[in-house]
Amino acid sequence: MTYAFPPGGLPDQTEDAAGNRAVFTTAYAFIPAAVQRDIVTSYFPGWTDTRAWILARPLSGFAETFAQYAMEVAPGGGSDAPEPDPGAEGVILVADGTGLLHLGDTTHELRPGSYAYLPPSSGWSLRATSLLRFHWIRRRYLPARGVALPEPFVTSDPETPVRWMPNTDLWGTTRFVDPEDLRHDMHVNIVTFQPGGLIPFAETHVMEHGLYVLEGTARYLLNTDWVEVGPGDFMWLRAFCPQACVATGEGRFRYLLYKDVNRHPALTL
């Protein structure tokens, strides 16, 4: 398994910014790996020896439900109180390195492909045991009447099977949560396309998306634009933005996918 991550560093003075292809529109944003550099990182209170690329945050009139980070933690760094919002839930997917996730009375060893769901007020903490890079998605949890709060869990990408779409083994999803489990108001999955796989229609739906390309290449439809995407590229889609995909490489194409689910739309802004 391979999991892309921002390259950091700084391009040489001979590079031309016009070739980076970054774009922000009223329907989507495309943030290529080439622009995820050292000088655009952020630092957080309560975290030591840590920097982050903030790739998405709620924006009025655009995508409003989630924030998405790529986190880099030096050995020994981390946080004893990483989540500042007691009403927020989160998901972590480890891209590279190792660390220890403390969750209640249990300590979990993190390695590439580790996946954790962290419900509100779960009291988790994290410490890197080597240079640790992980993707972190945060969302304000939306309670529903008569529906219990989800339990925390830790699993991994390699031990979770791909569920292939009907009548094909070229397009499938690694689902870490049962789609019919109404306790969960977000899904963070990994979508996989084998060479030649595609989404054969323009998906147009209420869910917002964050898509971080983990490996491989594809042509991706974003609203009216077909965009060439590859490892480390990030796509940020507002509700109802049409999307489709055609895998283009000789290897598989995979991305980490966020979407909001299982709740009525709010009727007031």
Rank of each mutant, 00 (worst) to 15 (best):
F176C: 03
F30N: 12
R238N: 12
G196H: 12
D16T: 12
A33P: 05
E203M: 15
L131N: 02
Y255F: 08
D260I: 06
E15S: 14
A4S: 09
L100P: 01
Y258F: 09
N223M: 10
L222I: 13
V206F: 07
E180N: 04
R219A: 14
Y141M: 03
T2C: 04
V40A: 15
E83T: 06
L55H: 11
P161M: 03
E215Q: 15
A266K: 04
M71V: 09
G146L: 05
T26K: 11
L237T: 10
R263I: 11
T173A: 08
D16K: 08
A70R: 06
Y212G: 13
W236P: 10
F62R: 13
T65Q: 13
V35P: 14
S42R: 15
A81F: 06
G76M: 02
T192A: 12
Y255G: 03
E83F: 00
G216F: 04
I39E: 15
E72D: 07
R111M: 01
S130P: 01
G197Y: 10
S130G: 05
N167H: 13
Y141D: 02
I31T: 13
M165T: 14
D80Q: 11
N223V: 12
Y117D: 01
R21C: 11
T48M: 05
V94W: 05
P45L: 04
L142Q: 15
R163L: 10
L221Q: 07
V229I: 07
V162F: 07
G196W: 11
R252Y: 05
D105A: 01
A29S: 15
M207C: 12
G249R: 11
G87I: 05
L221G: 06
P45T: 08
D105R: 00
I31S: 15
G19E: 10
E15W: 09
S130K: 06
T2Q: 04
I54Y: 04
F24C: 10
A116H: 03
F193I: 03
A95H: 11
P7K: 09
P200L: 04
D169M: 11
T173P: 06
A244G: 12
E215I: 14
G249E: 03
N20Y: 12
E215Y: 05
W53Y: 13
A63E: 04
